[in-house]
């Protein structure tokens, strides 16, 4: 339950950032209902807010969503969901539900943790989004509240837990440098796609340890 309330607070900042980026209330809420994966949602509205094309934002969101496929892989044997149940379960395959499900020893406890975390998160995530979006709608100039400085902080907070070793830290720094270096020469949002391509090549071609 704590995790769901925390995600509600995090969703408030998503609602605020999305609205400040120029998405309507309905579009903002649609992202939280339909996409329901935090980092991808922040990336999509972040790119749009920074003047990038909607499609660059969509591509970045999809690339960030690729890790959910690996989570799904780890969950598939635990969940044993079939048919319509699997279609529903898929929507809840995100960082938090995976963490809660794989922390349990018994498959039945894993399934329970997955579904309860999923339902609670979905509820609070969407309530928080609505609240953040409504609150920001009242503000006439989001820049006065410093909301243009909010997305980088959000990305940093999402990134930090993944940097607990030397290699990820080096990759993060290299990615930041490459993105800044190519930025003046390509349309907004495209530096992200270049970085994604380079890191995928790096991961694919390097020798296993």
């Amino acid at each position: 339950m704590g995790i769901a309330i925390a995600s509600g607070a995090y969703a408030i900042s998503f609602g605020a950032i999305s609205t400040a980026a120029g998405l309507s209330l309905l579009q903002t809420c649609a992202l939280s209902i339909l996409m329901f994966t935090g980092a991808s949602q922040f990336a999509m509205v972040g790119v749009i807010g920074a003047g990038g094309s909607v499609w660059a934002g969509a591509a970045t969101a999809a690339l960030l969503g690729s890790r959910n496929a690996l989570y799904g892989l780890r969950l598939s044997s635990l969940l044993e969901a079939r048919g319509r149940r699997r279609l529903g379960a898929a929507h809840f395959v995100i960082d938090e539900t995976t963490a809660m499900a794989i922390a349990r020893d018994e498959p039945a406890a894993s399934r329970f943790a997955f579904w309860t975390t999923g339902v609670a998160l979905f509820t609070f995530w969407n309530l928080g989004t609505l609240l953040g979006a409504l609150a920001t709608h009242i503000v006439s100039n989001p820049k006065l509240l410093g909301l243009d400085a909010a997305p980088p902080a959000a990305f940093l907070a999402l990134l930090a837990p993944r940097l607990r070793a030397r290699e990820p830290l080096a990759i993060a720094l290299a990615a930041a440098v490459v993105a800044i270096a190519v930025l003046p020469f390509v349309p907004a949002g495209v530096p992200l796609l270049i970085v994604a391509l380079l890191v995928a090549l790096f991961g694919w071609l390097r020798k296993p340890d």
Partner: peptide
Amino acid sequence: RTIPLIPIALLAALVATQTFSTGRHL
């Protein structure tokens, strides 16, 4: 090995570009 690297690189690139640029200007 590759998929977990993608969010690290993308999030870092997002932090950098959204802090130090407006459109195509640094």
